[in-house]
């Protein structure tokens, strides 16, 4: 989740510009070997581990358009739910809380990272 009043120091790394992550979507980045998915939820940026704890799907792919999506009920493979501030995994739809990194049904957690936005740049604290 975005932190306010922080000093962007060595602990923060710029991962994208705000433009590169349109609202309701996410990207995947590797920062010093750590895979992180960063999402834009109603203008707020959230960062969590990119690997789903279930079977290691890349969470940055959540929201990808399906093959022949127009012939299915829902358009995307999982995706960001801005209302509940969660992301559902593109493989089996486990729903991860973007603030806590928790999957409520199993009680499992994945890592979350602080984010910060300054001058249209998105930073993540490793």
């Amino acid at each position: 989740m975005s932190s306010e009043n922080v000093t962007v120091d060595d602990a923060f790394t710029k991962v994208a510009t705000t433009e590169e992550i349109p609202q309701g979507t996410g990207i995947g980045v590797d920062v010093d070997g750590i895979e992180i998915a960063v999402y834009n939820v109603e203008g707020e940026f959230y960062a969590i581990s990119n690997r789903c704890a279930h079977q290691r799907a890349p969470l940055c792919k959540a929201g990808d358009k399906k093959i022949n999506a127009e012939h299915t009920w829902t358009d995307t493979r999982g995706g960001v739910n801005e209302e509940s501030c969660t992301v559902s995994c593109p493989w089996h739809l486990w729903e991860w809380d973007l603030e806590t990194g928790e999957h409520e049904a199993s009680g499992q957690r994945i890592g979350t990272f602080d984010t910060h936005v300054e001058d249209q740049d998105v930073y993540v604290r490793i």
């Binding site: 093959i67 022949n68 299915t72 493979r77 739910n81 493989w91 089996h92 729903e95």
Partner: peptide, 18 residues
């Protein structure tokens, strides 16, 4: 959650390129 679909979770292959 959200009544997502189980049958076409990944998409729908209709032809070879899919």
């Amino acid at each position: 959650k959200e009544g997502n679909e189980g049958l076409y979770t990944q998409g729908r292959a209709e032809h070879a390129e899919d």
